[in-house]
């Protein structure tokens, strides 16, 4: 069974006079342990989908009736507040582009872990410290940093800490919305390689959102391409790269200068 199953998802942003449909009848599945990429330009609706899966939307966003988001067979859109509290982090965790800035600046790294672990599992301070040390190990950060404050760490380290917090409750699905866009290529490689390895060890699925197609092909098993709210093509990463079916996918590839070989693909301009 799929970990995530999005069915006929439509989302509107409702204005005073106009209604803008940001997501148009989108359906896709993510299998256990799968790394699924969602690509497209700004404004195509990819983050709107990510927000919907975490039930993070507030008006003016409106998820249309008939839409379904099934996580392990349960419809996320039907959850009440108590269910939602236990669903977030425990079943689905999210890392945002600016996640490194979402750490609380006045709490030590240890306290940030304790906050999540104690709220969701009632874990004691000493047990939380042990678990936090274990989680930091997963993302290659020495345990000495537990007593540090966020401003003492580099952007890449903070982003890895957020990923470690995401792993704390062993979620089935991690949503990563441009998790490395603000970082350097070398740091980006280190982080994604680490996620790739952790996924193999721990077996969680990933919904990975980016506009960087080359990166997406490098890390994903399957990829969906979005254009103006529609999912126009879904296929395995190699097919999206080698023989894209949709005209827009071809044009996206053609607009990216390459590091090796021909400067840009033939379809360009």
């Amino acid at each position: 069974m799929s970990v995530l199953s999005v069915r006929n998802l439509s989302i509107d942003y409702v204005g005073a006079k106009t209604v803008f449909r940001a997501v148009k009848d989108v359906s896709f599945d993510i299998a256990p342990g799968e790394f699924f990429g969602l690509a497209g330009e700004s404004g195509c609706g990819k983050s709107t989908i990510a927000f919907a899966i975490g039930r993070l939307h507030r008006p003016p966003a409106l998820i249309r009736t008939g839409s379904q988001i099934l996580v392990d067979g349960r419809d996320v859109l039907e959850l009440d507040d108590a269910e939602l509290r236990s669903f977030r982090w425990r079943e689905v965790a999210m890392v945002f582009q600016s996640a490194m800035n979402s750490l609380n600046p006045v709490l030590t790294i240890e306290d940030q872990f304790y906050d999540v672990l104690n709220t969701h599992t009632g874990m004691s301070r000493s047990a939380a410290r042990e678990r936090a040390a274990e989680l930091l190990g997963l993302v290659d950060i020495p345990t000495d940093w537990l007593s540090a404050y966020p401003h003492q760490l580099s952007g890449g380290m903070r982003q890895r800490i957020v990923i470690a917090i995401c792993l704390a409750l062993k979620p089935k699905l991690i949503i990563m919305d441009e998790p490395t866009t603000a970082l350097d290529v070398v740091v980006q490689r280190e982080i994604l390689q680490r996620i790739h390895k952790l996924r193999q060890e721990l077996g969680f699925s990933v919904l990975f959102i980016t506009h960087d197609l080359a990166l997406m092909v490098q890390v994903s098993d399957r990829i969906g391409i979005m254009l103006e709210g529609e999912l126009v093509e879904v296929n395995d990463a190699q097919t999206i790269y080698r023989s894209p079916a949709h005209d827009y996918t071809r044009k996206l590839w053609a607009s990216m200068p390459r590091l090796r070989g021909a400067q840009i693909a033939q379809d360009a301009k």
Binding site: Q193, D212, V217, Q218, V219
Partner: peptide, 20 residues
């Protein structure tokens, strides 16, 4: 250069890990 995303070199490939 090795860290620049390159669709021809996938993370699933074995030799990838030692590079960094």
């Amino acid at each position: 250069l090795s860290a620049v995303p390159d669709p021809d070199r996938r993370f699933a490939d074995a030799q990838f890990e030692d590079e960094l």
